[in-house]
Nucleic acid binder design. Structure first.
Length: 302
DNA sequence: TACCAGGTTAGCG
DNA sequence: CGCTAACATGGT
């Protein structure tokens, strides 16, 4: 991680293939997003660190992003945690230059290498958030999924109200373990989704499922199989979480309807491609499946 | 109105 | 094993 400490602000250095504006397009994709705000070219987000919750404001700089703290000044440890979060959130460790080499050689991804140059795969570092968001999004339209997520956060998360707006922390699994299915039914979650989310919270709480153990595990298929033992985590959710949270570069949610639609649009097909056809397309994306998926999603926001 | 949404599970043959 | 109805509800 490369960062510079200016005490009242910090600077996180970014690689050559980084474009803050492109990342903003992704982060500003929904009016219903509750976990951050995009305003005047800045991202505002409440972060939870070991010692304190801190509001951060991120803006673009010449060769990095500048982060300052509108409400209160964090400790040195907290500043380092913030830098680390942003490093992970924007996937700054990765050299994505080889992805563009792959994309330029591919008929489907070709346009993306220029069009969305510098877009990083925005992560969901919190495993419980990633799993819950994936489960919420199963088999419903995205607008409704954002509505459910907003209700979930505003019901069970922590909030700071200030002159810059309302900022929320995603609910912790400790909080969610105490819920009954009925508590989530009130927010219009289905009985099944409510059960899945509460069960996963309990499994995280008792240590059956942690991000640390998943990161230590070897082998893509092994990790995926392990995740799929939990109710509510099917192939799509496992791939989604491996992509957005664990950052496996080969993760690809094969059955994702959004990806199917993106491919149909890109290839100007009159029908969605079959799974077999998609597997053939993916041959050319080896090692960069996750970025391919993310850029395909991006192509739907036009 | 019917069908589709960032799918998954339990139950059946 | 592979296949399918049921799940809940909003958007079009």
């Amino acid at each position: 991680m490369e960062w510079i400490d200016h005490k009242t602000s910090i600077e996180v250095c970014t690689p050559k293939e980084f474009n803050f504006e492109e990342c903003l397009v992704y982060l500003d994709r929904s009016e219903l997003e509750t976990l951050h705000q995009v305003k005047d070219g800045c991202i505002y987000k409440l972060l939870n660190t070991k010692d304190e919750s801190i509001l951060v404001r991120i803006r673009s700089m010449y060769d990095g992003v500048q982060v300052d703290f509108p409400l209160n000044q964090p400790s040195i440890n907290c500043r380092e945690e913030v830098a680390s979060y942003i490093w992970e959130w924007f996937d700054l460790e990765r050299n994505i230059s080889p992805f563009y080499d792959v994309a330029k050689q591919d008929r489907i991804l070709q346009k993306f290498s220029n069009k969305y140059y510098g877009l990083r795969m925005i992560g969901i570092p919190d495993l419980f958030e990633a799993l819950t968001w994936a489960i919420i999004g199963q088999q419903i339209n995205l607008t409704f999924a954002y509505t459910l997520k907003k209700r979930f956060i505003e019901q069970f998360g922590k909030c700071i109200n200030c002159e810059y707006g309302d900022f929320w922390l995603f609910p912790t699994y400790q909080t969610i373990t105490t819920l009954e299915v009925g508590d989530l039914r009130k927010l219009q979650f289905s009985v099944r989704k409510a059960e899945y989310i509460i069960e996963i919270a309990k499994n995280m709480s008792n240590g059956n499922l942690t991000k640390e153990m998943l990161l230590q595990m070897q082998g893509y298929e092994q990790i995926k199989k392990f995740l799929m033992k939990f109710r509510g985590i099917g192939a799509w959710t496992a791939d989604y979480v491996m992509m957005r949270c664990l950052r496996h570069s080969s993760a690809f949610p094969l059955t994702d309807v959004g990806i199917h639609n993106a491919l149909k649009l890109q290839l100007e097909l009159d029908h969605k491609p079959s799974i077999i056809e998609i597997k053939e397309m993916m041959e050319k994306w080896k090692g960069w499946e996750a970025y391919s998926a993310f850029y395909l999603w991006r192509s739907l926001y036009e």
